[in-house]
Design a protein around this nucleic acid. Structure first.
Length: 313
DNA sequence: TCAATTTGACCGAG
DNA sequence: CTCGGTCAAATTGA
């Protein structure tokens, strides 16, 4: 039911965007650009909500840009055959909460990450299948729903357990959703997250789930592009590694898209929604679609406390 | 040569 | 059986 409604909303938003696009070809009203952007955000928001309702969970994005590079052409039987058995339960079993989620215009946050895996995810535009492969061949745009996995470059050297997942937005490829797990324990966590920056172009929406924070209280913040730095800096998670170079890069980053990713959180509370009503998850989604509150949250740096949301349970 | 990336296989959960 | 997360051999590029 909720899924149906959201699907309907998404179609409407898509239609609106199409109309605006058509209109924008004839008139160059700057306001129209903003409106179009807003429409795109709506679509993206709905997509994520749908994904969450379908049990997909996380905020995904896809980090890799571009089609498969075709770098590797090893025989399929190579490798793995004599691989020693090993436990890979880590995150699944531990049910580790994401430390924070950021939406940014580039998957690059300036930190040192080593890519260790990539997956096409379920309910994706181009699911993992032969058909998907065919599509990839004929399409110059890589699947927006491919998720890439990164771990700290110094995982083995310093035992740093920080990881992150990057996924590209389906409807707005310029937006990457980066989910961080754990905090850097290597020697690189000096400067907190790249979110910080006096005038930096930082991720406009950051959700902290409390993991790794001092008070354990999850938070969400949306920061404006136009230098609302003092506010945003208060929402910064305490321990993420970042360097001055990173911050500089952040300053150079193009404007991040602001949108709700409430529906895209892999762990609680969002992802557990199967009740049709009264669920905090759906409440969050409803909040997302409540234009007044949604717009407020997008542009006025609304802080959403997930603790309060969980109380509704 | 070595570090980083790619990508199929592996593993546990559901 | 499917799926998401991870591993690690093969490969690429500096």
């Amino acid at each position: 039911m909720a899924s149906e409604l959201m699907e309907r909303g998404r179609k409407s938003a898509a239609a609106l965007e199409a109309l605006l696009q058509t209109a924008s070809t004839t008139a160059s009203n700057p306001a129209q650009h903003d409106i179009r952007e807003l429409a795109e955000k709506i679509i993206c928001c709905l997509d994520r909500a749908l994904a969450a309702l379908h049990g997909e969970g996380a905020d995904n994005d896809d980090a890799t840009s571009g089609c498969p590079s075709g770098k590797r052409r090893s025989p399929p039987d190579a490798g793995a055959q004599a691989r020693p058995k090993r436990s890979r339960r880590s995150r699944v079993i531990g049910a580790e909460m994401p430390t924070r989620v950021e939406k940014r215009s580039t998957p690059d946050d300036g930190l040192l990450w080593r890519k260790y895996g990539q997956k096409d995810i379920l309910n994706s535009k181009y699911p993992r299948s032969a058909a998907a492969d065919e599509r990839l061949k004929s399409c110059s745009i890589i699947s927006n729903w491919r998720r890439t996995y990164f771990r700290c470059t110094y995982k083995h050297d310093n035992g740093c357990k920080a990881t992150r997942q990057v996924q590209q937005s389906e409807d707005d490829p310029s937006v990457y959703v980066v989910t961080y797990f754990g905090e850097h324990t290597c020697g690189m966590h000096a400067a907190a997250t790249p979110t910080v920056g006096e005038h930096g172009k930082s991720p406009q929406l950051v959700i902290n789930f409390g993991a790794g924070t001092s008070n354990g209280s999850p938070w969400l913040s949306a920061t404006g592009n136009d230098d609302a730095g003092s506010n945003s800096s208060q929402q910064v998670p305490p321990a993420a590694c970042s360097t001055e170079e990173e911050q500089r890069e952040q300053k150079e980053m193009s404007v991040c898209q602001v949108e709700s990713i409430l529906a895209s959180q892999p762990a609680e509370p969002i992802s557990s929604a199967d009740d049709s009503c009264a669920s905090p998850d759906l409440d969050a989604l409803v909040h997302c679609f409540d234009w007044d509150s949604c717009v407020d949250s997008l542009f006025d740096m609304e802080l959403i406390n997930f603790d309060e949301a969980s109380l509704l349970q």
